[in-house]
Nucleic acid binder design. Structure first.
Lengths: 210, 210, 210, 210
DNA sequence: TATGAATGAGAGTTCATTCAT
DNA sequence: GATGAATGAACTCTCATTCAT
């Protein structure tokens, strides 16, 4: 009674401020990029003083690192939530493509891709970021592999090499997502979606009508 | 008179200093990224004073913008040089894939992909960069389309939709190049090459043996 | 009742926390110097929160000032305890020299000299510190004068001017203590002791064999 | 003609700005102490921007270190200049005592002692400072030894142990200088001078009338 | 009494840019 | 054309101090 909240979100309550700051950081990062994100911007967005940001994260680097982790968590949490209820592998694969090519349809995804692009750019130069990126991308490929295996088990997909397909599909999705994120006039979101599904259908041998 | 050069490279001579600085800038950018590139670094690499860099480019932004243009020019000049001598479309397509997936085999390509990744990351936030990026990527897709059309004309490739194939292939190549550039242990350069060729073969209907 | 103490140290009990904090402060000061002593350091050493330190002392300045007072009190309490049992003035003088030149032989003296050095340095610039310092040094000279007078009354020392001797001896002891505190390789603790005693013997006309 | 200055001060001209800043730093240090010396203060005193201070010294630490070196150089240069013309050892010793006990008589000495006190206080905690301090004090004792040896050679002084005398005298002078620098009402500058000379006379066996 | 959270006021340092020479 | 010197405007991080609980 005294601790008003119903069990379930205690962790979130404990670091209420921390996650508030992290969300603010993520917001700033996705709008201005890592290198143009100032501690003062994050503080302003969170409605607190810059000193308080330091109080919770000690250094700017730590703040950005944790914000990146949060971005990944949010992405996967949300992705899983959207995927888990779907029974057929084909529909799940379609949802996966939708997730990457039509992120604007889902406000929860925010400007995730802006962050991933920045992450890649940083990873080229900074080993620590590279490690995070690698783990993230492997997780992503594993998600794809898992769907592919399910589809093969249920005879929805042909028995092609799972690793090859994962590499191919993740590459296509990354490449298309970039164009969509950068609002390329040639590669619109829906065009990207269609192209990706067409290619997936061709690779996995299921039929697909745009 | 002594330094007057025989027609052929007059522009290059006029901007001797300019292009020297631009090459230095490109070098620094590819090693440390746009956001960590200082005017002083470029000057140091070029063996001149920071003030002279400003003298030629007025602002850092202008310097980086022109360096980006130079990167594109070098990429395409080199690409064309490698492509133009090749007669068959299939072999030209293979060379295209080689160009993106095995850049380390060609010292002239340098760390180009590090620059493209950075370019994408910047383009998310800055409209001017976005414009440059768009033009660049469209140019890239047109290069692909051109090869595909040639292959179709010579009956090497099937008569599929050229635009679809260009979008698909450029997306796959971008996606794979990212992993290669970031030295992902799962997607090695040669694996990327094989996967890309396999996919191209499937899309265009030519036969390919890894 | 349980914590009620038998008369004798009531003040000390009332300010239990205060003196705990002061001792912590002294510890930090002697290891890092006044200017590098943070309120947070003192709190950490005392095992409490910085806010509680402020609660008891209001400002950092006040804390440092009181810590300085404590340092003096401890020094004199300890000095007196060591001196009072000694009957002859000569032996008492020797103990005085031992106190300043061989502080490391007595763990109770701690890093006192580190604090005095810092006190002098501060006193140059801050009048309030200067006042404390002056009182302290005068107290020190009076201690010397007192021993000298005793020795003259008991015919151990010659009847030289007491003030001159106090100034001379306190200066020599200060000067030597500095070198010892700074671990000068030329002026070791024992060398300092010998030199001081030799000089005292010469000034006061008692015989001394090293 | 073009380089207007007559040979002799070229080095000083080369680092005009550097030494101007160092002098400003020394000025600030002697008035406020090392720990309260801000880069901005030094810049203000020198009439330039803080950034220019960094331009010449890179870090604050380097600035303070070089300022300390300058203080020593100035002290010794000036001391030597005052000593070298004096023929008799006794008179030279007297000048030495005057140098430490009556620094206010000579504007060139400035607030040197404020700096030495601070130096000692820092040396307790910082090894690098300790090294500088040790060298400085040894130099000082060697100056004394040299005068003593001269006096013994000329039969002005008795043949006592030179090292002992140097340690004793330097200690007394340090101790007295502290009191003078701190303007102790009991130990006035002239009193300090008399006491020091009396003690020197006693140690070295020359006659001295205050 | 005791603390965690919060902040304002700096402090050192960086860096693009300017300017006199 | 070329530079060293100079600066203003940030930006990160520190720390004494305050306040609600």
């Amino acid at each position: 009674m005294t601790t008003s909240d119903p069990a379930g979100a205690p962790a979130d309550d404990l670091d209420d401020r921390r996650s508030q700051i992290l969300r603010a950081a993520l917001d700033v990062i996705s709008h201005r990029g890592y290198s143009d994100t100032r501690v003062a911007d994050v503080a302003l967005r969170a409605g607190i003083s810059p000193a308080l940001v330091m109080y919770y994260f000690q250094t700017k680097d730590r703040l950005l690192a944790e914000a990146t982790r949060l971005a990944e968590d949010l992405w996967y949490q949300h992705g899983n939530r959207r995927l888990e209820a779907i029974p057929s592998a084909t529909a799940r694969l379609e949802e996966l493509v939708r997730l990457t090519c039509l992120p604007q349809d889902d406000p929860a995804l925010g400007e995730s891709w802006a962050v991933w692009l920045d992450l890649w750019a940083q990873a080229v130069h900074w080993p620590e970021v590279a490690a995070v990126r690698e783990e993230f991308d492997e997780h992503w490929r594993e998600t794809i592999r898992s769907v592919v295996r399910d589809g093969q088990a249920s005879d929805e997909f042909q028995l092609v090499d799972v690793d090859d397909v994962a590499i191919s599909l993740s590459a296509v999705l990354d490449g298309l997502a970039i164009q969509v994120a950068l609002r390329d006039p040639v590669v619109t979101a829906h065009r990207a979606f269609d192209v990706a599904m067409m290619l997936a259908a061709r690779l996995l041998g299921f039929s697909w009508r745009a």
